[in-house]
Amino acid sequence: MTRIVIAGPRGNMGKEAVTMVTETEEFELAAVIDRKYDGMSMRDVDDLPNLDVPVFTDAGECFEKIKPDVLIDLTNPQTGKVHMKQALLNGVRPVIGTTGFTEEDVAELSSLAEEKELGAIIAPNFAIGAILMMKFSQMAARYMPDAEIIEQHHDRKLDAPSGTAVKTAQLISEVRQEKQQGHPKEEETLPGARGAEFDGMRIHSVRLPGLVAHQEVLFGGEGQTLKIRHDSMNRRSFMPGVKLACEAAMKLNVLVYGLEHIIE
């Protein structure tokens, strides 16, 4: 039985994670971390399920008292970074689903995970289909190196471009030479019209109510185009990936950045 703590149980993603853990036979929801309701039980909080599970506001105290195996954090970059470091220092394997980690952050946390010999996973996207979309895009870029990325998310998302878009661009860059796309003399008559630039590629971010998480990678070649698209219709779509990450973290002793590294 894998004992799990979830940070942010009242958030949209956190609620889905609570459901996933409680419905998984080999998982046990040991506690939750919330910015309110310290010392209470989940069943005593209106926004939480009727479960006899303790609520903590301090992650360190939670880890010391509960001694879980895994932390699931689907909150925000600032909180996720703090919780991940606290988890590793307390012998807990973190599964983090927020973006915004810098290369320096990942390097520091990787060193800590190796020092503690603990598995840890940071995933910009937990949707299995999105991971396949990134892998397929990397395959396509070997033969069609001209590409642009359009990512679409709900209008409450704070970062742009999305972590998935950046990760996709990084994977494509690994297999193609950097090249400046578009006409060499092109000029933006409105700043930002061509999107953000990454190694000569362009990334476009759309933010609208009604969207969840969507990404399309467009490839252009001589007389042809190729589109690789993934759509998450709801947040439950991320839960199989979260479950997979929890299982993988228990078998690892290093930090893995990106779910694509644990999908064959």
Results as ranks from 00 to 15, higher is better:
69 D>R: 09
172 I>W: 09
7 A>L: 01
202 R>G: 03
99 T>N: 13
42 M>F: 09
234 N>K: 07
204 H>G: 05
177 Q>Y: 11
98 T>S: 13
4 I>V: 12
244 L>G: 02
49 P>R: 09
223 G>M: 11
231 D>W: 08
100 G>F: 04
92 V>W: 13
229 R>T: 09
103 E>T: 13
124 P>A: 08
102 T>P: 05
237 S>V: 14
133 M>N: 01
34 D>L: 09
5 V>S: 08
193 A>N: 03
116 K>P: 07
146 D>G: 03
160 A>V: 08
183 H>A: 11
169 A>F: 05
223 G>V: 15
209 P>C: 01
145 P>E: 14
5 V>E: 06
100 G>Q: 13
14 G>W: 06
173 S>Q: 00
225 T>M: 14
141 A>Y: 13
109 L>Y: 10
36 K>R: 12
151 E>P: 09
11 G>I: 00
72 I>L: 15
183 H>G: 07
35 R>D: 09
34 D>E: 11
181 Q>V: 06
111 S>K: 15
85 K>P: 00
154 H>T: 15
81 K>V: 10
256 V>G: 10
22 T>D: 05
26 E>R: 03
214 H>E: 15
200 G>K: 01
251 K>C: 09
185 K>L: 15
109 L>G: 04
75 T>N: 11
16 E>H: 06
246 C>Y: 10
9 P>T: 01
106 V>F: 15
234 N>G: 14
36 K>W: 15
189 T>K: 12
200 G>R: 07
155 D>K: 11
254 V>C: 12
152 Q>D: 00
145 P>V: 00
170 Q>P: 03
25 E>G: 04
167 K>H: 14
211 L>T: 03
118 L>T: 04
135 K>Q: 12
149 I>F: 08
